[in-house]
Lab assay of single mutants.
Amino acid sequence: SEEEEEEWRRAKERGEEIIILGILWKPNDEEAERRIKEALRRV
């Protein structure tokens, strides 16, 4: 969703871990980033 995407962007800017759509994303975690982008597209 729009607000999840916004939340994720803010976490990326701050360089902090975030759990979004049930996926743990850490800074520079390209695999998780790809999965999150896929999940955001499906929503």
Rank of each mutant, 00 (worst) to 15 (best):
E33N: 06
E6Q: 04
A11K: 02
N28S: 07
G22S: 00
E13D: 10
G15R: 07
L21M: 13
R10F: 04
E16H: 08
S1D: 11
A32L: 05
L24S: 09
R41F: 05
E6K: 03
A39S: 04
E17H: 08
D29H: 01
E2D: 12
E2C: 15
E33A: 08
R34N: 11
E17M: 11
R41W: 03
E3R: 14
L21G: 07
K26Q: 10
R9I: 13
P27Y: 00
I19N: 07
E33S: 08
E5F: 08
N28M: 09
E38F: 00
K12R: 11
E33I: 05
L40M: 09
E30A: 09
R14P: 03
E4L: 15
R41C: 14
E3F: 14
V43C: 12
A32T: 06
G22I: 12
E38Y: 00
W25P: 01
E31A: 09
K37F: 06
E2K: 12
E4Q: 11
E16I: 13
R9F: 12
R34K: 12
K26Y: 07
G22V: 09
I23Y: 00
E4D: 13
R42A: 14
E13F: 04
E6N: 06
A11Y: 07
E16M: 09
K37R: 12
R42E: 12
E33W: 04
E31N: 08
I23T: 01
A39W: 03
L24G: 05
E6C: 14
E17D: 10
R10Q: 13
N28Y: 09
P27W: 01
I19W: 15
E3K: 15
E38H: 00
D29S: 03
R14M: 10
K37P: 00
P27E: 03
E30I: 13
E33L: 05
R41L: 12
E5H: 04
R9D: 11
S1Y: 15
I36F: 06
A39Y: 01
E6Y: 08
E16Y: 07
R41E: 12
R9V: 12
E13V: 09
K26D: 06
R42D: 09
E30W: 09
R34Q: 13
R9Y: 13
W8N: 03
L21A: 09
I19G: 02
R34V: 09
E30Q: 10
E38G: 07
S1N: 11
E6D: 13
E7Q: 14
R9A: 11
R10L: 07
A11T: 03
I18G: 00
R10V: 10
